[in-house]
């Protein structure tokens, strides 16, 4: 049987070249998770709007929710790339604290509380975050330490060093930073923090979907061996991905300084778990190769909306943690089902 039936040829009988797809179950599920997680968010918002009414659906409260989600979201975007590339970054919250302490120290050292000091601190903060990211990348690719252990180690190191530098006492950020980025609004409506987070999300969506950088991150997460054999420099790319995550944690540090006016050293211990929860809720696979910015944004918003809604409707806020845990398990269960069809 050597004949070659060109496409569009006879459609009858058995087509030897028609290697039929048995089922794209996985595909539908993976798209499905994003759909139903979006639906959950919409339903939650609808429900709270009906039950709580104006206090929930007011512009001021929507602004609260958006602002609450911003800092985690910027970190989650970095985590998304790491998870897509098949890794994990447990260090993000600690890197935020470290970068915040360094940035704040630089702002105070330059002094004057002016724009110059703030910019210098911001640069220092981002640089500190990138450095930790690079360290993570080196540990994972050069020292071949598993990402879980490597970033657990740098989590402790970054947190410890932040405490050493600050003597364990929170530093105060310049008031100008709080007044502008922290509570300032564009046109008096949209908080600057939300603008920054939105820009970050748009930029990361473009990076993931439109560039070679994102394509290679997806390929490495899908199969590092296949990527390597196709000529992708896997080690170098992973290093860049971890550096990106650290850099975004550095950006989040400036946002956190602006929002709270202090380094909030004790306030980010669980950020890594919250961020990973957000990314996984948003449909990313912990096995790599799958994940979207839209999902991550929604995954970040769900816990925030839930907490906000519970507080307003008078439900004990502790239920939020329970509910998030439940939703997370449901999401990962789906993820496992999804992976069942994979090599």
């Amino acid at each position: 049987m050597t004949s070659y039936n060109p496409p569009g040829g006879s459609a009858d009988a058995i087509e030897p070249h028609d290697l039929s797809t048995p089922s794209s179950l996985w595909d539908r599920l993976s798209r499905g998770q994003l759909t139903w997680i979006t639906l959950i968010l919409v339903m939650m918002v609808g429900l709270f709007s009906i039950v709580a009414g104006r206090p929930f659906s007011s512009v001021a409260n929507v602004r609260n929710i958006a602002t609450d989600a911003c800092i985690l979201m910027v970190m989650a975007l970095g985590e998304l790339f790491v998870i897509i590339a098949g890794g994990i970054d447990l260090s993000v919250g600690a890197v935020l604290v470290f970068s915040g302490v360094v940035g704040c120290a630089v702002m105070n050292a330059v002094g004057g509380g002016g724009v110059g000091a703030i910019l210098a601190g911001a640069v220092a903060s981002v640089a500190a975050g990138s450095t930790w990211g690079l360290v993570n990348g080196l540990l994972v690719t050069r020292a071949k330490i598993s990402p879980l252990i490597a970033t657990l180690g740098t989590y402790g190191m970054a947190m410890g060093l932040a405490l050493v530098i600050s003597n364990g006492i929170d530093l105060s950020a310049p008031v100008t930073l709080v007044k502008t980025l922290g509570v300032g609004r564009v046109f008096g409506v949209i908080p600057w923090l939300v603008v920054v987070a939105t820009l970050a999300a748009v930029a990361m969506a473009i990076l993931l979907n439109q560039t070679r950088f994102g394509r290679h991150a997806l390929a490495i997460g899908a199969s590092a061996a296949a990527a390597e054999r196709s000529g992708v420099n896997v080690s170098r790319h992973l290093m860049k991905v971890y550096t990106l995550s650290g850099t975004l944690a550095g950006v989040a540090a400036i946002m956190s300084l602006a929002r709270f006016g202090t380094t909030t050293i004790g306030g980010h211990l669980e950020d890594n778990l919250k961020v990973i929860t957000a990314v996984v809720l948003g449909g990313a696979s912990l096995l790599g190769g799958i994940g979207t910015v839209r999902g991550t944004v929604i995954g970040t918003l769900i816990p925030v909306v839930l907490l906000n809604g519970f507080v307003i409707t008078g439900i004990q806020a502790f239920w939020q943690q329970f509910a998030i845990g439940l939703v997370l398990i449901a999401a990962v269960y789906l993820d496992r089902r999804k992976q069942a069809g994979r090599d």
Binding site: R215, A219, A226, R229
Partner: peptide, 16 residues
């Protein structure tokens, strides 16, 4: 180890 399973056929064709 030939293909990246989560990418589509064209992305695999041009991988790298």
């Amino acid at each position: 180890l030939a293909l990246a399973p989560t990418l589509d056929p064209v992305a695999n064709l041009f991988l790298g």
